[in-house]
């Protein structure tokens, strides 16, 4: 159970000390990718608790969700449709859902 935390800490450390910073116009894409990633990780935790964790599903879900979210956001921007908010909303709902399920699983009810 320590590995994810360990990885997260390494990532935070590297990210905070990375010299390059993102141009402001790309911050939308990163934020939606971030939402997708958080959702994927929480989904992974949930499936692990449920006992049907699959490595491939987890990793592919992590990357594919993030990338698709970014692509969606990009095209939304080009077309003048705010798909960014749609993505944020969808991932936000799923994150809360996942957290609720994880909470229930941990409480054992």
């Amino acid at each position: 159970m320590l590995y994810p935390l360990f990885g997260l800490l390494i990532g935070l450390y590297v990210g905070l000390n990375m010299p390059l910073s993102l141009p402001q116009e790309y911050i939308k894409f990163l934020s939606i990718a971030l939402m997708a990633a958080i959702d994927a990780v929480l989904g992974g935790v949930r499936s692990a608790r449920e006992g049907n964790y699959d490595n491939q599903i987890f990793v592919s879900g992590f990357f594919v969700n993030a990338i698709v979210a970014m692509i969606l956001c990009y095209f939304g921007e080009r077309l003048g449709i705010d798909l960014y908010f749609v993505g944020i909303l969808a991932f936000g709902l799923r994150i809360f859902q996942n957290i609720a399920i994880i909470r229930r699983l941990y409480l054992g009810k």
Binding site: L8, I10, G11, L12, G15, L22
Partner: peptide, 26 residues
Amino acid sequence: YDKHAKILITIVCAILGVMLATQFRT
């Protein structure tokens, strides 16, 4: 988890950390 999965999860979490930190810094 097997060993393979642990490494993958660590990497994924590290990427998540980088993204978080970058977002924060930006």
